[in-house]
Design a protein around this nucleic acid. Sequence first.
DNA 1: CTTAACTGCTTAAACGTTTAATCAACTCTT
DNA 2: AAGAGTTGATTAAACGTTTAAGCAGTTAAG
Lengths: 357, 357
Amino acid sequence: MLYLLKRSSKDIKNSNIKKKTTIKDIANVLNISAAAVSKALHDDSRISAKTKKAVRQVAKNLNYQPNHLASALRSGKSNLVGVIVPRTNSNFFSSVIENMEEVLNKEGYNIIITQSNESYKKECDSIDTLLFTQVDGIIASMANETIDLKYYEKVKSKGIPLILFDRGENDLNVDYIGINDYESSHMIVEHLIKQGCKRIAHIGGYKRTRIFNNRIRGYVDAIKKHSLPLDDELLVESNLTIKDGRAKMQQLLKLNHRPDAVYVAGDYAALGALQILNEQNINVPDDIALVGFGDEPFTSMVTPSISSINQHSAEIGKLAAKTFLDHAKQSSVKQLLNKIILDAELVVRASSKKVSK
Amino acid sequence: MLYLLKRSSKDIKNSNIKKKTTIKDIANVLNISAAAVSKALHDDSRISAKTKKAVRQVAKNLNYQPNHLASALRSGKSNLVGVIVPRTNSNFFSSVIENMEEVLNKEGYNIIITQSNESYKKECDSIDTLLFTQVDGIIASMANETIDLKYYEKVKSKGIPLILFDRGENDLNVDYIGINDYESSHMIVEHLIKQGCKRIAHIGGYKRTRIFNNRIRGYVDAIKKHSLPLDDELLVESNLTIKDGRAKMQQLLKLNHRPDAVYVAGDYAALGALQILNEQNINVPDDIALVGFGDEPFTSMVTPSISSINQHSAEIGKLAAKTFLDHAKQSSVKQLLNKIILDAELVVRASSKKVSK
DNA sequence: CTTAACTGCTTAAACGTTTAATCAACTCTT
DNA sequence: AAGAGTTGATTAAACGTTTAAGCAGTTAAG
């Protein structure tokens, strides 16, 4: 009596939830072993073409979906790649991610995106989360705040492939994909000089972040190279938000000896700077020329349109994904190290194109 | 001899890769069973306080990290929640995600973010990916393109909790969190009327998307209610990008009888509209008042600042997460249905604040 | 004709947990 | 002092795969 009760309640459950079909169900249908089915589905050379075909047919009929957790557990591979970015709400990062995803999906990998919001703590949490989820690799762009690299060292020490892009860190000695920031600064400065600018300011990012430091070094060296004035007051450090772009532009306008060109290390801050210039009826580019960095879509939509550096986000995303795949494919022992530095491209727009020239 | 060889080769391996510590290692140290360790870590009532304490201590010493895959496989729960959004590169969506993540992380869930890029196909792929990854639930905002709901039905039929936010769909009959779009339109129209506007245009989103349809209905009804002119030419459909905002604004300016106010259903399109107005030296708000939708941060940074509707993105994210947790916690049988409609808030800024009044 | 190699499969163990079913040893009740 | 209940553990099976090892049957080589 008790048994009957139990069984009937179980039956109700079963009829509701309809168990997923497993490899065993397929094996039962064909009267072969589960192992054979597994091998057939993986196109193992030791399984006959006939069996493979039959297995695939039955799998389709039963709407078989492989249990990712089981295979991940057994094989030790989750087929998941973790991605850490400061924020996804810029075109640069969302484009990088989109292209990474495309490449990785093709090889059977899925991605988990996490945002650090430029916070060191959140970045550490993200790393822990990703390690917990047993990702097969991590592709990251570091938060501005991050100085202590111990969490990234932890990833390395676990033998999980780590690829950095854009915001990298030399000391870590891992794969890196980015653009030539130093050279980009040269391009910008030389472009501005060609337009007749003689006093070029730079609203730069945080000095301790490598890419921004490279941009600053590039700016300084280019200015020196062309014997232009290199005043301390012309070089300011910023967090590169719209808001701070406004503040730093206001600061530059207060100078006794104003610049006739401003090179801003980020487009959002460049937009803020442009707003101030427009509000104060300062003609751009004739009074002050402006160049941004990143080629965010809005740069071409504002008035005047902002010259900027195209960072090849799509390319970066694809290369980062491919670099991971290189690691994943080969045995863990051989450790190749990729440092890919792409040439960036200066897109000249109205904000730095002097018609008077 | 053979044994010795095998062992030594194994030892080399171990010293290199240093195996992760498992529940068994802890059990061995304490001379108890693995099951006891598992229960201790889960704070089972049948394990003594002393044992629990010891287990936790050893776990810490050995730097034990639970194997998520194994527990997920055994328990049938992956503790992963899938999130699908059109794009992450707006403040609205990234803020929603950030807050969702916060709530879910606290309960031990992690999230997998995927972007549909407004493409129906990519949305379907995302759903398949998430199902494959065995997420415990899906929280989504639908792509503009999506009309066919069969993929979402698939999620429902698998018994996986599905929660929609912002871009939902009535026919699906699932939980939904959003704002009162219809009422928001009323607020905007009435605000503009108070400013003295008599001819109000609406650059709306796609009619077939429910939220945009509600905004359009709200606009139409509010106009009717106050006996203002309701010309077909004043109501235009847009994809709400910056670019299309520009195009649709230009279209409105070509009318014989120009509007004196424009209500745009999205901030990016409102920005495009503002650019055109600025370029053509049309005074905002005196000649034409402007109101956007979404309260993206840049609305307060442009000149003039754009009035907009605050959608309470943080709230939406948190509520969506909580709604999922409600489902996750209770047995699958009882199916409660939440439709949460938040009141939005009109943030009045320079673009619709007539000083002449 | 024997040995070797290949083909196509099966068996069984393993991945690291969770959990139902037991069990031994106590502590109360009555 | 026997039965009932509680406490704190153990055992063993299970989750759905993958994979090393093995085995029967066929083919090829010497």
